[in-house]
Amino acid sequence: MAKQYDVLFRLLLLGDSGVGKTCLLCRFTDNEFHPSHISTIGVDFKMKTLVIDGIKVRIQIWDTAGQERYQTITKQYYRRAQGIFLVYDITSERSFQHIMKWASDVDEYAPEKVRKILVGNKSDEVDKRQVATEQGIKLAKAYGMDFFETSAFTNHNITETFTRLAEQVLAANKKDLDLLRMSVNDEINLAALEEEEGLCDSAAGDQGKGCWC
C-alpha cells in the first residue's frame, strides 16, 4: 500500500465551550461552516495532510468537549499531543480569562515539549468584541506563543493558524526527522512510520523516530 504521508502528528484543540473549536476544525478540514452550536460530547478528531518544506505531514486534530466536567476524559489525551491550540472567543472575556487555566492544565498534563498557539476566534463579530487584539498579543507574548485571530465563519486565518502550529511541531522535531531521513533507506522508514501509527501511546523514545509522542 502506497504511503500517503511522511510523518504523522497530533494536534489538540482546547478552550471553553462554545468558542468555536469544532467550527475551526470543520473549516480547516472540510471547508465547511455550520452556524448552529452542536456541543462536542467527549472527544472527536479529524485528519488532514499538509505539505511543509516538501514533507507530507499528516495531522490528526483532536477536538475536545469544552465543558469542564468533560475534562476528566479529555485530559487523558493531552499527553498524546505534540501541538495544542488554546482557543478563546473574542466576544467572550470569560473565555479569554480561562486561557490561563487551560494553559496551566497543559503544563500539567501535556508533554513538556508540546508546542502551543493562541487563537482568538470569531474575529468577524466586531460589534460584540470584548477582547482587544492587543490583549491577545500580550498574553501570547507572555506565554511565548504565536497568536492568531481567526474566523471560522469568514475563513479568516484558518489555514494560516493550523499550518503555523504544524510547522512549529515539525521544527521542534526536526532533529528526529533528519535522523530518520539519514538512517537506512526510505522504504524501511516509511514502513516503520506506518507501524508507528498504532503504537503511539507506548513510550516514544524506544520506538522509531518517526512518531514524536
Binding site: 465551550s17 448552529s36 452550536h37 452542536i38 462536542t40 472527536d44
Partner: peptide
C-alpha cells in the same frame, strides 16, 4: 436533515444547545 448532515462529519446531532 441535521442528522444526515452531521453524520458526514462524524458528529451527527439533533440539537443546538443553548449556552
Amino acid at each position: 436533515h441535521m442528522t444526515i448532515e452531521g453524520s458526514k462529519e462524524s458528529l451527527s446531532s439533533v440539537e443546538h444547545d443553548t449556552y
